[in-house]
Write a protein that binds this DNA or RNA. Structure first.
Lengths: 225, 225
DNA sequence: CGTCACCGAGTGGAATTCAATCATCCTGGT
DNA sequence: ACCAGGATGATTGAATTCCACTCGGTGACG
């Protein structure tokens, strides 16, 4: 199933951010418990007021336990970021499966919907943007966007016969960056998301991609070759 | 001169971030020296690993001196941010003056050019993005984008007769967010800026705004009313 | 000689470590 | 099957380190 590839359990972008892989089952819950706590704390006190003690407290663990699994404070945020990205991809897959797709646009629309949905439902999702420039998770943010663009390109090529190639990937990455910026802006003030920016985001994406991948543009491309 | 308004010495966004206004001349240089040091450190160790001690060291001052002028660590970043924004506006004005503007597009182009130029020449400019979401200067980042959009709107209205109003401001803010995201992406890996993303940024901006403000669109608007 | 600038050891709180302790799993003997 | 008891994973929290920020003392300028 090509769509499932979006989730991607490949190790390419994966990272060993956990010091020790949990062996016993009790600690499996600890890990996600710590992340849940971190997410809750982020939403409560904000991104830069987090303390490791708060996370430990909220998770019902001691400080040492936090450091058993994560090398330092920012690694916890990294992990939270990663988990949210995975959930985002899962949500995109769900959206794609629940909708009847008649053109590539429907797929892009699903991505936007998934993104907006997560912003609304996932605690701490705000810190998770693909392109946070300066904060902790910054390093591999672009790698995430790039990775996602590649996967999305696969889907669009396989299901809607868009022309594969670097151009498509590049344009999707451009689209991802723009969408991320506009949606982040939509949620900057309004916790439910400013509909104006969300709508404009869909419009911009469609216009931009239509320029290259509208039926007309594709026809021109086909007859020219 | 309407263009000069872009620089904006209004007190609306200004802030009393310096504790003590320097009285003696020697300390005038100290202030900018501290900011230069901060900028250098930001470029070297990254945004979240900055240390007040590092800044003091680099500036050849002691910690106490930093705190003489700035109330706390983030105030230094704020000041750096503010200085960069002022320089950006100045550069935009310079670009506008040095170019012959035949349409609003040339003005937008100048803004992009100024932005790219600063990215290349100004140390620490990366932290200065309009829309840093989580880091310290995040609070008024959107306010900056909004402010800049308003000023730019004034210029475009006065010089190119674009229809004034909230719609124009909103669209310019959308444009600013998109441009910022794409240019940040352009400079994420390549210190000189990936030309592909820069070019695509110009294209996206033009297409987006053309939709509403191309001569044809404006004519339609005029005849309809 | 009174300010203005500057210094840098000192304070407090948060981040991180680590040696001790507890819990769980494993193994081999009965 | 059962269980003792070592081996190893998991947890703890006091101790340590790091870092932002203060403040009393020292020079420099006018």
């Amino acid at each position: 199933m090509t769509r499932g590839g979006l989730i991607g359990e490949e190790t390419g972008a994966a990272l060993q951010q956990v010091r020790t892989e949990p062996i016993q089952q009790r600690s499996a819950a600890r890990l996600s418990g710590l992340l849940d706590a971190a997410a809750a704390v982020v939403d409560e006190v904000g991104f830069d007021r987090i303390t490791t003690a708060m996370i430990a407290d909220r998770a019902g663990a001691s400080i040492g336990t936090v450091y058993r699994y994560y090398p330092d404070r920012v690694a916890v945020l990294h992990a939270l970021h990663e988990r949210a990205v995975v959930r985002f991809r899962q949500r995109v897959v769900d959206e794609l499966g629940a909708s009847t797709l008649t053109s590539w646009w429907d797929a892009v629309d699903c991505v936007v919907t998934a993104f907006v949905g997560l912003y609304r439902s996932e605690p701490g999702f705000r810190i998770v943007n693909f392109d946070d420039r300066d904060g902790a998770p910054a390093v591999d943010a672009v790698a995430d966007a790039d990775f996602f663009a590649r996967r999305l390109a696969d889907v669009l090529v396989n299901e809607f016969d868009l022309p594969a190639g670097d151009d498509l990937i590049f344009r999707l990455e451009v689209a991802v960056e723009m969408a991320d910026a506009l949606l982040a802006r939509a949620f900057h003030t309004d916790p439910l998301g400013d509909e104006r920016f969300i709508a404009e985001c869909r419009l911009v994406l469609r216009d931009y991609l239509d320029r290259f991948y509208s039926p007309q543009a594709l026809n021109l491309l086909a007859t020219a070759s």
